[in-house]
Design a protein around this nucleic acid. Structure first.
Length: 276
DNA sequence: AACGGAACCTGAAAGC
DNA sequence: TGCTTTCAGGTTCCGT
């Protein structure tokens, strides 16, 4: 369930658990998250090494392990958790890094995540291709506006493009568009400068709110089974818009669903006059 | 080049 | 209760 806020929480946790510590043992079974890399070689290259840094960019994490980077993408269901050294493997455990007094495990039932080891001086292409990260770099409305002018895609699609803005996924895109009062099907190039500024604020606020919700001593993924839905419109089709009360709708673009308020997020731009 | 759709997987929830 | 269907926040590949 990870988008930028969840991955940021994961980064903070990993920093607390691992930074400065020596990996005394690594256990990484061969699964598709390794994309064909040899598991035993990976274990060997990590064991006995020290974790010097934990970074996040977009939805990617990377651990500095001596002269290497261990890149981690959580896919749809990936999760780093801390367990006792003697705790048995979880059913969906795909990696474990043991340090002096704890054992950090990577769980991923659907195997959509990735784990890649690279020498520090050869940065992973996917990482390098990432666009501006809202927390690491901050967003520049003018620069974003210029990028949006150059595409024919819808604004929703562009928001999911990690090379434009890194870390925004379906939830954050949905929430940001609602906050900015923009219809997801609008052509990105049709947004005015003022609308782009609203969008930037929408993204920043949505991420900040989600982050605040998820902050806590234990890892809590918002929107896990049983938990209340903390979002304004995401997964709330049929409920009233929290701003105007109109019934929230759901549309599908390129196979991804977006919920929106048809009144707050008109298909035409704000200045366009609709018929009386 | 750009787009929609399917695929990759498992699990939870809803539907019957 | 239990079986079936639908849906899921990630990317990636394939055909048009």
């Amino acid at each position: 369930m990870p988008e930028l806020p969840e991955v940021e929480i994961a980064a903070r946790n990993l920093r607390r658990w691992l930074a400065g510590q020596k990996i005394v043992a690594a256990r990484i079974p061969a699964t598709r998250i390794l994309r064909g890399a040899a598991a035993p070689a990976l274990e060997k290259r990590l064991s006995g090494r020290k974790v010097t840094a934990v970074e996040r960019r977009g939805k990617w994490l990377r651990l500095g392990v001596d002269r290497d980077w261990l890149y981690s993408h959580l896919g749809m269901t990936g999760k780093w958790v801390r367990r006792g050294r003697d705790e048995p493997a979880h059913r969906h455990e795909r990696a474990r890094l043991d340090v002096a007094r704890a054992s950090v495990r990577y769980l991923d039932p659907r195997l959509f995540g990735r784990l890649v080891l690279r020498a520090r001086d050869e940065e992973l292409a996917d990482w390098r291709a990432l666009g501006a990260d809202p927390l690491v770099d901050g967003l520049d409305a003018d620069a974003l506006g210029a990028t949006l002018k150059r595409t024919s895609r819808s604004i929703k699609e562009v928001l999911l493009d990690q090379t434009v803005i890194a870390g925004v996924g379906n939830i954050q895109a949905t929430e940001a568009l609602w906050r900015a009062r923009l219809h997801p099907a609008r052509r990105a190039s049709s947004l005015s400068a003022a609308e782009v500024r609203r969008l930037v604020k929408g993204i920043e606020r949505s991420i900040a709110d989600t982050l605040a919700d998820e902050e806590g001593p234990e890892i809590t993924y918002v929107e896990e089974p049983g938990a209340p839905n903390p979002f304004r419109v995401y997964a709330r089709a049929g409920e009233p818009c929290p701003r105007c009360g109109r019934r929230i709708e759901r549309i599908v673009q390129a196979g991804r669903s977006t919920t929106l308020c048809p009144k707050c997020q008109p298909r035409a731009g704000r200045n366009a006059r609709s018929r009386p």
